[in-house]
Design a protein around this nucleic acid. Structure first.
Lengths: 162, 162
DNA sequence: TATTTATAGTTAGTATACTAATTAATTGTA
DNA sequence: TACAATTAATTAGTATACTAACTATAAATA
């Protein structure tokens, strides 16, 4: 097998696996009657970790753009899981706060996440995982995207889809 | 570092890299004045490889669902890159055909793809790539999705985002 | 053959990614 | 201070993913 064909399959696998990870966890949420989507969960989880962010900060941490975050927050607010509070320091900003109901929902979801993670990464050897991370980091470097990014090992939890 | 934290970072990297691969190639298309999106390219490329498929077959090969494919074909048809021809054997079906203009566009895009692939997979060692593929295949197996899938090495080209 | 069931494709509606434009408020500067 | 530039958030529009419902046709079966 030639290197070209090899990288083609690898790129396919990266894209396919990312899609499957998201779809599978979405299915888990649905089957457990969780009334938020995967992307809403990402935002809610971050707010549970620490709230009072401006929307801009929250967008950065969750790797969502401003318009997308606006709509996700609209949905979360209509379900009473978050609130927007006008900042007194800067009246252009809102501080985004998670509600008690939001915190309660987050606690319901975490066990599903842990189960999902151990299921998806079952039977994988640590040395292979290390090699994969090396490849993925290299691709990211090659595509010149890591520069303004928050370090992976500090903030992976705020972006990952589950 | 514990295994839990390790898998968290790995999952983050998979999802992030998939996103970056797509975004970067989309940027390449845009900067080169290519008048189709990445997903339209995926469909067009498959039709250039072999056309005359029904939409259902095309949907399977490109990993798109029927409504998504309908809309992508609508866009490609309005740009005169493909045509739908009513099947005489089964009048529910269309046969999807690439036009000469479509073929011309595909030939314009291929060089961008090869450049993109070698750029993104630069500085990567073959043994690490092999380990990564092993991990990704295991995750796919763990999430029970490989069963009805076409074998990766036969059809990666039809799905990959670039 | 008539009816039921299944299939191909489309349409409609929601959620998210992305770009561009808009509004309101703040900051920088002449 | 007045004006210009910047920033935070929203709104609007296009593209795609996903689900559900619908139309037309074909296949299965009573």
């Amino acid at each position: 097998m030639q290197i070209d064909e090899k990288t083609l399959i690898s790129a396919y696998l990266i894209e396919r696996t990312a899609k499957i990870l998201k779809q599978s966890f979405a299915k888990d949420l649905l089957e457990n009657g969780i009334p938020v989507t995967v992307d809403q969960w990402i935002v809610l989880r971050e707010l549970d970790r620490e709230d009072g962010f401006s929307q801009q900060e929250l967008a950065t941490y969750t790797h969502k753009d401003a318009p997308t975050l606006t709509r996700i927050l609209d949905l979360l607010e209509s379900k009473n899981y978050i609130n927007r509070i006008k900042s007194k320091m800067d009246r252009r900003r809102y501080l985004v706060i998670i509600t008690p109901e939001g915190k309660k929902l987050v606690n319901t979801i975490w066990p599903l996440v842990y189960t999902f993670r151990s299921r998806s990464f079952n039977n994988i050897e640590l040395q292979d995982l290390t090699a994969m991370d090396k490849v993925l980091n290299t691709i990211n470097d090659n595509l010149n995207v890591a520069k303004n990014e928050i370090k992976f090992n500090e903030n992976a939890e705020t972006f990952i889809n589950h």
